[in-house]
Computed example of a mutant assay.
Amino acid sequence: MFRSIFFEDYEIGAVRETMGRTITETDIVIHAGQTGDFYPHHMDAEWCKTQPFRQRIAHGTLIFSVGIGLTAGEINPEAMSYGYDRLRFIKPVYIGDTISVKVTIKEKKEHPKRPDHGIVSELCEIRNQHGDIVLACEHLLLVKKTG
């Protein structure tokens, strides 16, 4: 679905939340194959039993990718991703955990070189089924102004 939202339309403090998605062993195996990250933290169940977390954990980059993908329900033709800041892997995500995302508009500012655009910063908090924040980052959007 396409919906035009201009820079002036974004409201600081506005919140949206996504549906959940359960992380599977298949997700982890496919991500390892795509990235080449076969570290034992993700792939070796027996080794993980000797570690503090006691079981395999999902790649942080997998949780980032899936979480951000969950937020992409609507396409705004007036905005594009400008990047991500302050990305933190806060808690592990295990096989069978269900993640969802809370997105809060944090800040709006002028673009230093493009007067017809502004930058909107969204705080993205990826949570597990217990409500614990497992990953947080700021998503920067380059957004066209109305005038």
Rank of each mutant, 00 (worst) to 15 (best):
V66C: 03
Q55N: 09
D27N: 12
I12V: 15
R21Q: 04
G33E: 09
I28C: 07
H130R: 15
P112F: 00
P52N: 04
E125S: 08
T146W: 08
I68D: 11
T24L: 06
K144V: 05
E125W: 06
I119V: 12
H111Q: 04
G147F: 14
L140M: 06
I90N: 10
P115N: 14
C137E: 05
K113W: 08
V101R: 02
V15I: 14
G147R: 14
G73A: 05
E122Q: 14
M1H: 11
A45F: 12
E8V: 03
G33V: 12
K49M: 12
I105M: 11
G96M: 11
R127K: 15
M19L: 09
P112C: 00
D116H: 11
Y94R: 07
F6Y: 15
P77D: 07
P52L: 03
W47I: 06
V120S: 03
T50I: 00
P115H: 10
T61Q: 11
T61D: 11
K108G: 00
G20Y: 02
V66D: 06
G33N: 09
Q55R: 15
V120N: 01
C124S: 06
T146C: 11
D9S: 08
G13D: 10
I5G: 02
T35Y: 08
M43D: 04
V15F: 00
G33D: 09
I133L: 02
T35I: 09
Q129D: 12
E11H: 09
S4Q: 06
G60Y: 02
R86V: 05
H117V: 04
R54Q: 11
E8C: 05
I12D: 03
Y82E: 01
G20W: 05
I95Y: 09
